[in-house]
Design a protein around this nucleic acid. Structure first.
Lengths: 171, 171
DNA sequence: TGCGATTGTATCGTGTGCGATTTAATTAGG
DNA sequence: CCTAATTAAATCGCACACGATACAATCGCA
């Protein structure tokens, strides 16, 4: 089916080759990421969210794993900025600005300039946005079940993929 | 950094949870696929190709691992159809039709209706398209080096990701 | 043979994605 | 202080990506 290790190694040794997409690591990631989006689609359709919108909402719901909202109760300016979210979901402002505007148009978030630094736009969940969290809470288990792998296997694979990603982004 | 196995397992057990993007498998694939595209960019810029265009050209160059062009010398109708390419790169015709038209506009391929079945459009490499293969042949080794992993490790990770993809696409 | 079902592409609308650039606000340095 | 450099968002242009739909060509079956 796929090109053998020996064949790949020989080709790399000669440092000049043509690979079919189904032999490429990058295509494995590319097609798997798209397959994941398709697996989420029926669940996200119920919520009226696209997949990247779901990632942004998940970041807000989790407080990006509680890095953002320490003291947010007292100080609304501790809500994440658009840049904070951009770093969490690894998207450019040129992608995120219109996406968040669509979330705002859907009534899930608000966008407000920070009073102390007017360059920043702080993103707040609305009541509707907070309520959606419970309606989305079943999704991870559904996806994990569809993956048909042990949770430990999924976590190991996730970490290996994250390691590869970080290396591709470095130097 | 990332949510622990214990935490994930507990959450899956309760079947209701909110994960931050950086804890999700799907986000690992999503962000790694984008990081890969960025790693290819400098090489593809030299060729004037986008990343999905490179996947299509790679499929043509490899004859999709020699499944397409048996006897193509004698019979030009054995060239891959748009549907053949769509299956290889796992894209819809609505994505591939304009993409291939751009490759045609760049002088890399031709599109011709099959005389025996006028529903199908057969895609042929032009001389310029064939010549580009040599200019792209160094790319896999450059990417593999940047990944900083043993080839065997890369192949194993690719196969695991492909397995996950196939499970997400099934049922 | 003829006609309904299927198949292969194409078209349209919406929503990403990113590079390049712009604008406004803040910071840093002399 | 005052200006140069930096930073945060936004804007624009182009290219995916897919669902829904349309349409023509072919197939299947009575």
């Amino acid at each position: 089916m796929c090109q053998s290790l020996a064949s790949l190694s020989r080709a790399i040794y000669y440092r000049a080759m043509t690979l079919a997409p189904h032999d490429m690591i990058c295509f494995a990631l590319y097609s798997a990421a798209h397959a994941m989006q398709q697996a989420y689609r029926p669940y996200l359709d119920e919520l009226g969210l696209t997949y990247p919108q779901y990632l942004v909402m998940s970041a807000l719901w989790s407080g990006a794993a509680e890095g953002w909202d320490r003291g947010a109760e007292q100080d609304p300016e501790h809500a994440p900025s658009l840049g904070d979210i951009a770093r969490e979901v690894q998207l450019e402002s040129s992608t995120l600005t219109p996406l968040v505007k669509r979330l705002e148009a859907a009534g899930l978030v608000t966008r407000r300039r920070d009073a102390r630094d007017e360059r920043q736009v702080r993103i707040h969940l609305t009541a509707a946005g907070r309520e959606m969290r419970a309606r989305a809470a079943h999704i991870p288990a559904c996806i994990a079940e569809k993956a048909g792998m042990e949770i430990g296997e999924l976590v190991r694979l996730r970490d290996e993929v994250n390691t590869l990603r970080d290396r591709m982004k470095a130097g």
